[in-house]
């Protein structure tokens, strides 16, 4: 098994683990971590496809960089929404106890 094939297979495995996490986990933070694991799996497959012995294909590297930025944006948005829901719940709980 060559090195890049090993990376690809591990990438697919990570992707599978991530999908499992997204589907099964109930907690929003767990789901988000799982989505990020999926992302890393995809990035590994991309990086492995850039490896051609001596020469390296820069296009997948650029795609991964773009993908990371998009992942940051998506994660931040989900965190923001989750925290706002939590804040609403707390305010509601605070009002009902008063």
């Amino acid at each position: 098994m060559t090195q890049d094939l090993l990376y690809s297979v591990v990438g697919v495995a990570l992707f599978g683990i991530g999908v499992f996490g997204v589907v099964v986990a109930a907690h929003v933070i767990r789901k988000l971590i799982a989505v990020n694991i999926m992302g890393i799996g995809v990035f590994m497959v991309l990086l492995a496809s850039a490896h051609h012995g001596a020469i390296t294909d820069p296009v997948p590297h650029a795609m991964v960089l773009t993908g990371i930025v998009v992942a940051v944006a998506g994660t931040a948005q989900c965190l923001w929404l989750a925290l706002r829901i939590q804040l609403l719940d707390e305010n509601e709980a605070g009002e009902s106890t008063q």
Binding site: G18, G74, C78
Partner: peptide, 8 residues
């Protein structure tokens, strides 16, 4: 979350 799952 569904959107992220789908795009990945």
């Amino acid at each position: 979350l569904v959107g992220l799952l789908g795009s990945l």
